[in-house]
Design a binder for these strands. Structure first.
Lengths: 197, 197
DNA sequence: TGTACATCAGTGAACGCGCGTTCACTGATGTAC
DNA sequence: TGTACATCAGTGAACGCGCGTTCACTGATGTAC
């Protein structure tokens, strides 16, 4: 049974989930409050009981989606061994099916919406930093910038794969990024080997 | 003096330029046809003399902006020597001021708008392929996927730099990408050296 | 060169529609006695 | 346990406004004679 409090919280979650689905597919400006509420199974009037404005919803959706990703990465990075963790994260990110269905990371499918909204940018800051840290953990002893280039590589490949009409080219972006990141430890080891030789 | 034909064409260009400015800053769905026409110095009614719909305008803006970039890259790649050309392209793409002012590449500042619009995706196809080819030319003898990872690195770094509130972190994304791409020939040469040793 | 007419780029009012937000109300749930 | 009242999540009509698109019109430019 639901107390009033949990029922209210559950509704909020339903709105967040509905907005996440629709915003990701159509962009924040491509979807109205009434469409979000209909998707959540309610009428639009009740929206303002849960969020002060549509902008606030956009920020909350961004934060909440990226928080989920950050938590997953952190879990993976701390529980499995390094190489396997990196594999898991990279394969999860560059999943061709996810790209085709539009269910990609906030950093790729809402990046413009977030970049243009100061409130959303701020909301996304903490999980973004957490993701960088988790990546760095998986990459091991490399310089701190290794996580930044790896994340750029992931984001760029998905963004480009989403933009191209050609399924083969899209796959090439994803595969190339995958190999580049997963082999990124190898060159540095070779270089170290050369140095120590 | 302008003949009727060139005046018409000039107006079309003015509309395209105005739309480019506003779409890049606010997204296609964040700007109306009347705002575009006002920015171009006209009233909104005349818009349909030049474009059949707002969607067509969005596609044309995407194509035209990316065509400009593609032409610049091709020129650079064919006129200057390899290393310098790569430097030029990478520095131009990762310009921190451009990122701060919002005047970045279509692939980063309109990526979601393009990805969601089949017509715009198609319009962007040719210049995108041209850019990949120019990049590959600059990268020299490396495997064909080198241009794909380099482009992903460029796009991802700018997308992430635009999304973060922290100017320092933004710069780190840009600098890390710059170093990663510009040093990308070195490791392969080292590897080749190791192999032949 | 001058006049009469045709062309057509651009104007601005109007169309139906959906937006974000507000608010008086409903009705189900929770609380007091 | 039963009744009376308070709370509050959700409803749906309404607000002013801006959207994308259409169209009758204006007036400047181009053409014919």
């Amino acid at each position: 049974m639901s107390t009033a409090f949990t029922r209210r919280a559950e509704t909020r979650q339903k709105i967040l989930a509905a907005a996440a689905r629709l915003f990701r597919a159509h962009g924040v400006d491509g979807i109205g409050v009434d469409a979000v509420m209909r998707e959540a199974g309610m009428t639009h009037g009740g929206f303002y009981l849960h969020f002060p404005s549509k902008e606030a919803l956009a920020a909350e959706v961004s934060r909440s989606l990226l928080d989920d990703a950050a938590r997953r990465w952190e879990m993976v990075a701390t529980t499995t061994d390094r190489g396997e963790a990196l594999n898991n994260i990279v394969d999860g990110y560059l999943d061709a099916e996810k790209v085709a269905s539009g269910g990609t990371c906030v950093l790729t499918c809402l990046c413009n919406d977030v970049a243009r909204r100061p409130v959303a940018r701020e909301a996304v800051d903490a999980p973004l930093r957490s993701m960088i840290q988790s990546l760095q953990k998986c990459l091991g002893e490399q310089e701190p910038k290794a996580s930044l280039t790896a994340l750029s590589q992931l984001v760029g490949a998905v963004v480009l794969a989403r933009m191209t009409d050609d399924q083969q080219l899209a796959d090439k972006f994803l595969n190339a990024a995958r190999e580049a990141i997963l082999s990124s430890e190898a060159p540095s080891q070779i270089a170290a080997g050369v140095e120590s030789a």
